[in-house]
Design a protein around this nucleic acid. Structure first.
Lengths: 344, 344
DNA sequence: TTGTACGCGTTATCAG
DNA sequence: CTGATAACGCGTACAA
């Protein structure tokens, strides 16, 4: 109702209007019980009347904290079907909110400007902690993100060797399980669609596949491999390469759902049947994979939980001084039993 | 190299170590040309040595701005295949970065705690402007988000009647075009899968369908309708309802890709063929839709551009006082020609 | 119970 | 060209 004149009201304005000192107004917010009922009511009335709300930035400065987390997320390709980062961010955001933290987000890309922006945010004291999800060098002009002096938690990439607590998925273990699952169905020949060589997840998952092969068959030398990337298109390319093979493996393991979606699509378009002609198993647990025909058998990551865990871990580090308790948390991915695998 | 003792260095620390006043150190950052070469080099050297970086929060407080935008995003359902909000956020983030703004994000949900959190952020002066993408009441305990005194831009929902500049897609026009496209193929009977009654986009798109019908056929009375929602599952339900019809329309228009994906999947599972037995056209332009079999014919929104536009509009409002120039910007969605439509 | 004074880390103004 | 000072908006000892 009462229209405030123009600018935002400050502690000062309220104090003057209520005929008290600014500390009294301040107390009315934080420690209402320490005021006499009379002045408290008076102050609160004026507070409402003037539409006063404390300036959180100033409060944080005074209190020496920021109550803000900075999440560094991976670049989002326009042609992506992945909801991984959205889910992760949702989990992070929900946990932040519960703990009264604000969430700053920046999506990485390859430009120096972006690297500089992140560094600026981190070194500029805009946040009290960092969640790292982007696979990036985080370095510019000799300034490294890790040296910004803030607590850091890595999400989905294991960075414990850099002394950074990490919340990760069971990349390796899941892929070992994938081999067992396929082998139990009678498969003995395997085709692996990997990601880029510099991708952490790709390397982990390939290592898992090879370990699984060695554990089950004593050797991984028979593994055939195609290098794809994050895109659906690269899965289509993988299909072309697969189809050109003289002796096609009966089981295909794909490093990520995006590529698997492209792969399956191209295979079906070529007239082959899944899982009749070949079995396909993948990793990520995208909802989109569930609605392919057939639904793609894939490892579900529950990124929302992972994100929430990472945020909580970081907030614990901020609140309790510094020492990270458990170095790293691994969340097992759960196999979603799509229709893309079958006995040979 | 040089390990800083423990806490972050401040202007004061550098000044003392360099034997100058704090204003000189401050100037070395902002106006280096106003210092003598000698002192500037000295100060800069000490700055580097101590690992000093200005505290942005304090600077912003002094300068009376926040250089921060707050984006209020819709709730993300765990079972979603939509990348709309991710794309929008990416566009917003990129534009913020270019303009030196930080980006605060909060995902809405139905809880009061979240509403309170958003209100707190907005009224607390944590940001200088708001981007609204969530379809929510934004109100709690009589505090309305719109009254927080900050410039606001609506993304994807037309809020110009509330005097809020809006960046929107061509919901209505596109759906009118959809009718024409289908009618040109010979279709005369239509089935519309809507969203929830309280969804802005659903209402807009239904209005577009009906307008298109009236424009082309003089009446919309023949339109059959099923109410779905944001989920893939609701599209599956729609398929069941459609299949139960005695006289099935040959053309199906779906309000959103998520539901369309479920619908198509269920239709195919039931043994019907698309587009042989029915044509399907939808809205959203999800990448996932492109890789369905057949690819779903859908209107592509380019949310990245929309997001960037919204951010820029908001920043303009912040920088240039207040007056919003153009009330609203409409981005036409482009039809992605999937294989889900055909002549009757 | 309430008011005074100071400081959080900056930057801008004004002397010198 | 450089330094002292005030102020941004707030919270809290300390004193009254």
């Amino acid at each position: 109702m009462t229209e405030t004149s123009s600018k935002k009201a400050s502690l000062h304005d309220v104090a003057r209007a209520a005929g008290v000192s600014i500390s009294t107004v301040s107390r009315a917010q934080a420690h209402p019980e320490r005021l006499s009922a009379k002045t408290r009511d008076k102050v609160l009335a004026v507070t409402r009347e003037l539409g006063y709300h404390p300036n959180i930035a100033a409060r944080n400065l005074r209190l020496g904290h920021t109550k803000t987390l900075l999440a560094v997320m991976p670049n989002h390709k326009a042609t992506s079907v992945s909801t991984i980062t959205t889910e992760a961010q949702y989990g992070i955001g929900a946990q932040c909110r519960k703990q009264g933290y604000a969430l700053n987000v920046v999506h990485m890309d390859e430009t120096e400007a972006t690297a500089d922006h992140v560094l600026q945010l981190a070194y500029g004291g805009q946040a009290s902690g960092l969640i790292l999800m982007a696979e990036q060098p985080y370095e510019l002009h000799g300034r490294r993100l890790q040296d910004c002096g803030l607590p850091i938690v890595s999400l989905s990439e294991d960075l414990t060797h850099l002394n950074i607590p990490s919340v990760v998925t069971s990349d390796r273990q899941s892929m070992m399980d994938a081999i067992d699952t396929l082998a139990d169905l009678g498969h003995t020949s395997f085709y692996f669609i990997s990601g880029p060589d510099n991708s952490y997840h790709s390397r982990q998952r390939e290592a898992g596949v090879r370990s699984g092969l060695i554990r089950r068959f004593g050797s991984d030398t028979g593994l055939q491999k195609f290098r794809a990337d994050f895109s659906v298109q690269s899965g289509i390319d993988a299909a072309a390469a697969y189809l050109a093979l003289d002796d096609r493996p009966s089981a295909v393991i794909c490093w990520a759902d995006e590529a698997a979606i492209g792969f399956q699509s191209a295979i079906l378009n070529a007239g082959l049947a899944i899982p009749d002609d070949l079995s396909l198993i993948s990793f990520d647990g995208l909802t989109a994979s569930r609605y392919m025909r057939p639904p793609i058998c894939t490892f579900d990551q529950n990124m929302t939980d992972l994100g929430a865990q990472a945020a909580q871990l970081l907030i614990d580090m901020i609140d309790s001084g510094e020492p990270p308790k458990g170095a790293s948390i691994e969340y097992p991915a759960k196999l979603f039993p799509g229709g893309s695998i079958a006995p040979i």
